[in-house]
Amino acid sequence: MGVTKEGVESTLTSKMNPSHLEVIDTSGGCGASFAIEIVSEQFEGKRLLERHRMVNSALEEEMKEIHALSIKKALTPTQWKAQQDSSTTQAA
């Protein structure tokens, strides 16, 4: 059984309780490969390295089969909102 985008989403949803989650399948046919954007209150007060470790350990089982994983964003809801606001301002 391979790892699916849906599988990654459901594991992260149940373990990290994210307020925003985007899992992008980047495999292009060469094996399970994903890019992730995740926003969770559990990242509060954690440095980037710790945040990535939390995502890695949540996906411990999947990691055995995942070929490549890229964590593009691991933000707290406050940081996420600030980013959204600033990008809206830039676009306006």
Binding site: L48, N56, E60, M63, A68, L69, S70, K72
Partner: peptide, 25 residues
């Protein structure tokens, strides 16, 4: 490193991170 993938960057004997962390930093 308690880190599942490569590359792994070490600075001054301390694990710094993988590719995404290095790019962000």
């Amino acid at each position: 490193s308690n880190w599942p993938t490569f590359p792994q960057l070490y600075i001054d004997g301390q694990f710094f991170g993988g590719c995404d962390i290095t790019v962000e930093a």
